[in-house]
Amino acid sequence: MSKPDHDAELDARGLFCPEPVMMLHNRINDVEPGGLLRVVATDPSTTRDIPRFCQFLGHELVSEQEKDGEFIYVIRRGE
């Protein structure tokens, strides 16, 4: 069994702005600084909102991709 490439996950599928970012704001605090949080969402507005969230709050957006109508982000928590 392989180790996941993230420390925690947030499933925001089916939620619409501003809920995914509000949930992200709470969930990122459960991750240690430097840890990785994987976010899965279906709201296209997250393609704008999550990069801005990271920029303003000092987190690193490690990756973002769209696959089968889902938006998948990996965020490294800042200090």
Rank of each mutant, 00 (worst) to 15 (best):
Cys54Tyr: 03
Thr47Phe: 10
Asp43Gly: 03
Pro33Met: 07
Gln65Glu: 15
Glu60His: 15
Asn26Trp: 11
Phe53Tyr: 15
Leu24Met: 05
Asp30Asn: 08
Arg48Phe: 13
Pro20Thr: 02
Thr46Val: 15
Glu60Cys: 05
Cys17Pro: 06
Cys54His: 07
Asn29Phe: 12
Val31Arg: 05
Cys54Leu: 00
Val39Tyr: 00
Glu32Phe: 03
Gln55Thr: 11
Arg52Gln: 13
Gln65Ile: 11
Phe53Ser: 03
Glu64Pro: 04
Leu37Lys: 01
Phe56Ala: 11
Val40Pro: 05
Val62Tyr: 07
Pro51Tyr: 10
Arg27Trp: 00
Cys17Tyr: 15
Pro44Glu: 11
Asn29Gln: 13
Gly35Ala: 08
Gly58Lys: 14
Pro44Phe: 09
Glu32Ser: 11
Pro51Ala: 08
Leu37Asn: 02
Val40Asp: 05
Asn26Thr: 12
Cys17Glu: 02
Gly34Leu: 04
Leu61Arg: 08
Gly34Cys: 05
Pro44Thr: 04
Phe16Trp: 07
Gln55Val: 10
Pro44Gln: 04
Asn29Cys: 08
His59Tyr: 08
Ala41Val: 09
Gly58Ala: 07
Asn26Met: 13
Ile50Met: 10
Ser63Glu: 15
Ile50Thr: 09
Leu24Ser: 02
Val40Met: 02
Ala41Trp: 06
Pro33Cys: 07
Val40Glu: 08
Pro18Leu: 10
His25Pro: 04
Ala41Cys: 09
Glu66Arg: 09
Glu32Asp: 11
Val39Ile: 10
Arg38Asp: 02
Gly35Val: 10
Arg38Asn: 01
Leu37His: 06
Ser45Gln: 11
Ser63Trp: 06
Leu15Ile: 00
Val31Phe: 06
Asp49Glu: 15
Pro51Gln: 08
Phe56Asp: 14
Ile28Val: 10
Leu37Met: 03
Arg52Ser: 14
Phe53Ile: 02
Asp43Leu: 00
Arg48Ile: 12
Asp49Tyr: 15
Val21Lys: 02
Arg27Tyr: 01
Thr42Val: 11
Phe56Met: 12
Arg38Ser: 03
